[in-house]
Amino acid sequence: MSLRVSSAFAALTLVLSSVAAPVAFAKPTSGAAAVKMIDTDNDATVDLKEVQAVASATFDRLEKDADGTLDAKELKGRLSKAGVRQADPDSDGTLDKKEYLAAVAERFQAADPDNDGTLDAKELNSKAGKALLALIK
């Protein structure tokens, strides 16, 4: 009987933690799956506002030492060393939230070749789209 209760408790805990968890991509995500997770207005595309909302939550989740910035360790390979240098205009070796969101916006623009201000599943599956998703996962 106690095994049954423990299993039920574990299942309930798993369900509750998945409901309360912010959008996160544990594995590489397809463009279609990413659109479903990010698209809050259900128009089958994602705009910069939707992407930056996820990116902001990602920044908050990654920022472990409460200094308001992400260093290379906290970024966990989301940006190369050159990418960090490019996104770091004050050259302090870390990214604050404003710098991080600017890097997200830059990757968004690169993934939007038709410049319509939205990304669909096909655009998110492109090399530039995958680079954007890597930054916000």
Rank of each mutant, 00 (worst) to 15 (best):
L135G: 07
V35S: 08
E106T: 15
L79D: 04
A87W: 14
Q109S: 15
T94F: 09
E99T: 00
Q86V: 08
S30Q: 13
A55V: 13
L75Q: 09
A10D: 12
E106C: 06
V35W: 04
D41N: 15
T45C: 02
K76L: 10
K73M: 13
F9A: 14
A57R: 06
A21H: 05
L119A: 04
K127H: 11
V84C: 02
L132K: 05
A44L: 12
T45L: 04
V35A: 05
D114W: 00
A24Q: 15
Y100W: 05
L75T: 06
F9H: 07
A21E: 07
K76H: 11
D43N: 14
K49F: 04
A105K: 15
V104H: 09
L95Y: 11
F9T: 02
P113R: 07
A102S: 14
K64D: 11
G77H: 00
D41W: 06
L3C: 14
I38G: 00
L79G: 04
T69W: 00
V35F: 00
A26I: 07
V19S: 13
K81T: 09
P113K: 06
S18Q: 12
M37S: 13
S7G: 15
S126A: 05
L119W: 01
A82I: 05
R61V: 08
L133V: 07
A82G: 12
S91Q: 14
G93T: 06
D116T: 00
V23A: 06
V46Y: 02
A105V: 11
A44P: 02
E50G: 00
F9Y: 06
E74M: 03
V5C: 04
G83P: 09
A103K: 14
D92S: 12
T40N: 07
L48N: 08
A128G: 05
A8F: 13
V5R: 10
G31E: 14
P28Q: 10
P22N: 09
L101Y: 07
L132F: 03
A8Y: 15
